[in-house]
Amino acid sequence: MNLFPDHETQEATISVNSLNHYYQQGSRKQVLFDINLEIHAGEIVLMTGPSGSGKTTLLTLIGSLRSVQAGSLKVLGCELLNATQAQMTLARRNIGYIFQAHNLLSFLTVYQNIELALELHDVTAEVADTRIKQLLTAVGLERFSHSYPRELSGGQKQRVAIARALAGEPKLILADEPTAALDKQSGRDIVAILQQLAKEQNCTILLVTHDHRILDIADRIIDMEDGRLSQEVPPLQPRPGNLSPGIEQ
């Protein structure tokens, strides 16, 4: 079974239909109610909402980190409802993740942390080296390639995390509060890099945030409250550039 057919960009990158989700600790508690959502290739979508509203749950479901219970969830053309563990693991390889905590491996250098993402892909030594150096330059950390994460500032670590997420050239980036632990300037830098790189690779981004300072990068903003997606709100101001759905390189 080919999990990832060569899909054309007409198909939505993420397609959620009537998704419901429950937590089963003690009593059965519903956390997501009838979610419907389509995100197209190249779109940058921000998801906001109060804590506990189910944003992260939805993000982990889309990221194939949690089993879908009811409804339909298609990511990059692959249905995740009733997917096996192995299928879920494979699905993750086409997604780049950026976490609130950078989650870099402490015992690896900056270079090795990015290299690790390439372990999953069939690459030659030269291609890997070129790719890693390109990414380090893109995030402005070429001088730090042999540093360990503990030697870096919070913003620098998050930039390494972005480079790692992009190493495998994913078609989809999922980010959870990537700027929460950063000061204003670092936060702006991070989203700028993210936006720039996503544009270059025609990559879709779904970003959960509370951070009002970065809302302007969005093509679209969706709001989650009590497990329901509310009406989409328009971006605060029109984004420069034209990363609209369906754009070709």
């Binding site: 690896l108 892909h121 291609v127 050239e169």
Partner: peptide, 19 residues
Amino acid sequence: MKTDYRATSPRQKRPLFLA
């Protein structure tokens, strides 16, 4: 920036010795 890194070649990247 687009690189065809999935091309197979005799000189594969050596895996990281994580352990």
